[in-house]
Amino acid sequence: MKRYWKFLVPAGLAVVLLSFLIVNLNSNLVYFNTPTELMERQADDARLRLGGQVVPGTVAESATGAVFEVTDGRETVLVDHTGAPPDLFQEGIGVVVEGSWDGSEFHSDTMLVKHDENYSPENPDEPFPGS
């Protein structure tokens, strides 16, 4: 009886871990979709996560939040965001917005700033490091 325990405890943990991974591999491991991927799903009512770079020069304040364009370098989506954007929100930065399609516009109510892996000191000659 005791002999089984030696294998059951670690094996049980491994099974839990693996099944969690397999379940997640289907969808959740991809945290957000790109504008190119989401363009094909404009008719979809589902709640989606859209991620990309804020196009410089497109950010405008609106009565309910902000309007701006998000791009992955190929496609560009107009985002109408409701709510206060995070402090680091700015032109050229990466964002992940949560919401759904409304025609050809993306209506979001949750915004996360996706910071990239670049470290560089402040430099006025290069306003968007890493972009």
């Binding site: 991809v30 945290y31 992940v96 892996e117 470290y119 560089s120």
Partner: peptide
């Protein structure tokens, strides 16, 4: 490698990555 294999909110590695370190400033 989760940040390299899948698209995550967390940024990918800054030091151990294919294009060399993403930190140029020596003090950093």
């Amino acid at each position: 490698f989760s940040v390299v294999w899948w698209r995550t909110l967390h940024q990918p590695p800054s030091i151990i990555r294919p294009d060399g370190p993403a930190i140029q400033d020596p003090l950093m």
